[in-house]
C-alpha cells in the first residue's frame, strides 16, 4: 500500500481565485483527513512533498518547511491561481515553516491554522482565529493505545534471541544441553521477558499519567518491577536466579518504556538526554550484575562452587 499522494495543487469542490489555500503534507492519511473535513467547501489544497511523512514529523525534519513551501508556491504559480495572498498552514507545520521568510520570498502571508483539520470550519467562521483548544496538542489514552503496536513490535523482534539465550543457559549442563531443564528452568524467565515487553511497551504508554514520576525510565521500572513480582510470586521462585530476574527485567522494562518518548507529543530532547545520561550506566551495571548472578547460579547447580 502506498502512503503518499502526488505533491502539487488539488481542488476541493469548485474553487476560484478567492478560495482559501490549505497546505498539507503528502502523507495519504493526513491528506485524506483534510480533504474529508473540507468537504462541502470550495478550496485549494497545496500538497508539499514530505516523502509520505505527516506534517509534524516532516516539519521536524525540515521536509515540511520554508524551502519546500516556497518551491511549491513558485512551481504551481499560486499567485496566478488566487488573487488573495493568504495561505493556511497547519499549526504544527510551524516547526519547519518560517512565516516571515515565506512572505518575503513569495508575498503570501502564512496563517497558522488549527492543529486538527476538524477545527477548520470553526476557525474560518471565526475569521481565521484559533481558540486555545485549537492550538493545543493532547495525548489521550486512545492516542497512546494506538501507538503501542509500534512499541511492542521492535521490542518483540529481539525476543527470539533472548529466548534462545535463556533456553541455552538453563538447559546447559556439564553433560550437554538438556531440553527438560531448558524448559522447566527457562519458562519463568521466558515469561518474565514477555511481561517486561508488555509492561514497558504497553502498560507504561497506556497508563502513562497514572504511573508516578515524570521520568519514563522510572515509570517503566515501576511497571516492570510489578510484573517481576507477580511472575516470581506465582511461580514461587526464590534464590539467585530470582535476584537476577529482579535486577534485569525491571530495567529492561524501563529501557523499553524510555523508547516511547519518541512517540509522545510532550517530551523534549533535553529531557530524554538527561534520562539517558542517568539511566544507561544503571542499565549496564544491573544487566552485568544479573548475568554474573546467573553464572554463579549455574556454578552452584553444577556443584563447582
Amino acid at each position: 500500500m502506498r502512503y503518499s499522494v502526488e505533491p502539487g495543487l488539488c481542488a476541493i469542490g469548485e474553487p476560484d481565485s478567492e478560495s482559501d489555500v490549505f497546505v498539507s503534507a503528502n502523507y495519504k492519511l493526513s491528506f485524506d483527513i483534510l480533504r474529508r473535513k473540507l468537504k462541502g467547501m470550495n478550496a485549494w489544497i497545496l500538497v508539499l512533498d514530505t516523502k509520505g511523512i505527516n506534517v509534524w514529523c516532516a516539519a521536524g525534519k525540515g521536509t515540511f518547511g520554508t524551502d519546500e513551501l516556497v518551491r511549491q508556491i513558485n512551481q504551481i504559480e499560486l499567485h496566478k491561481v488566487v488573487n488573495h495572498r493568504r495561505i493556511i498552514v497547519p499549526q504544527l507545520g510551524a516547526v519547519g515553516v518560517n512565516a516571515r521568510a515565506v512572505q518575503q520570498a513569495t508575498g503570501f502571508r502564512v496563517h497558522f491554522g488549527p492543529v486538527h483539520a476538524k477545527d477548520i470550519p470553526a476557525y474560518i467562521a471565526a475569521g481565521y482565529k484559533k481558540t486555545e483548544g485549537m492550538r493545543l496538542v493532547k495525548f489521550s489514552m486512545l492516542d497512546r493505545l494506538v501507538l503501542t503496536p509500534m512499541e511492542i513490535n521492535p521490542a518483540m523482534k529481539k525476543y527470539p534471541v533472548f529466548a534462545l539465550i535463556v533456553l541455552m543457559l538453563f538447559g546447559l549442563q556439564p553433560s550437554g544441553i538438556l531440553f527438560k531443564d531448558a524448559l522447566s528452568g527457562g519458562l519463568p524467565f521466558l515469561l518474565l521477558g514477555l511481561t517486561s515487553v508488555l509492561s514497558g511497551a504497553f502498560v507504561t504508554p497506556v497508563m502513562l499519567p497514572f504511573i508516578p514520576f515524570r521520568s519514563f525510565a522510572i515509570k517503566g521500572f515501576i511497571t516492570g518491577m510489578l510484573a517481576v513480582f507477580l511472575i516470581t510470586k506465582s511461580f514461587g521462585l526464590t534464590g539467585l536466579s530470582t535476584i537476577s530476574a529482579y535486577l534485569f527485567f525491571p530495567v529492561a522494562s524501563s529501557y523499553i518504556a524510555l523508547q516511547f518518548t519518541g512517540s509522545t507529543t510532550f517530551t523534549s530532547m533535553s529531557g530524554v538526554k538527561k534520562e539517558l545520561k542517568i539511566a544507561i550506566p544503571i542499565y549496564l551495571t544491573t544487566t552485568a550484575l544479573s548475568q554474573l548472578l546467573l553464572v554463579i547460579y549455574k556454578l552452584f547447580q553444577w556443584e563447582i562452587l
Binding site: G60, A94, V95, G96, V97, N98, A99, R100, L258, Q259, T261, G262, S263, T264, T267, S268, M269, S270, G271, V272, K273, E275, L276, I280
Partner: peptide, 21 residues
C-alpha cells in the same frame, strides 16, 4: 523559528531515545 525579533532560542531536536542513543 517564527520569532522575527530573535527573542526566543531553543535547542530543538528529536526527542526519541533510540535516536539519541
Amino acid at each position: 523559528l517564527n520569532c522575527e525579533f530573535g527573542a526566543i532560542t531553543v535547542d530543538s531536536g528529536v526527542g526519541c531515545a533510540s535516536a539519541i542513543i
